[in-house]
Design a protein around this nucleic acid. Sequence first.
DNA 1: GAAATGACAGAGT
DNA 2: GACTCTGCCATTT
Length: 111
Amino acid sequence: MSAHRRRSHRPALTPFARRVLSLLKRVPAGRVVTYGALAALAGRPGAARAVGNLMRVAPEPGLPYHRVIAAGGRLGGYGGHEAMKAALLRREGLTVMGGRVRGFARVRWEG
DNA sequence: GAAATGACAGAGT
DNA sequence: GACTCTGCCATTT
């Protein structure tokens, strides 16, 4: 196999990563989705942690990474800037208190 | 290819 | 309800 397609010097996304990112694009403002749910929707239930890693790397710009939160409505991480994550979510109309998204069950994106 | 990594989840204290 | 511990997974080293 030769080195065709030398479009970029960046590594290509894995199929799993592409599925997750593709799903994330569909999460509307004012709604949130959990790491675990994204993993499951991507066809890899149980890979919540792997999704977290992907969010940490955030390969593709312009995606609503702040809408991905932890189970039970907990905020989860944001590269050490959780306050910013909360601010972004509030800007979209959500209420964040004590590291939790209020009414999580009602704003959660199901796919 | 084994070991390490970490924006998780769930059960147990 | 806050904390701790254990299991899980894709990716990277």
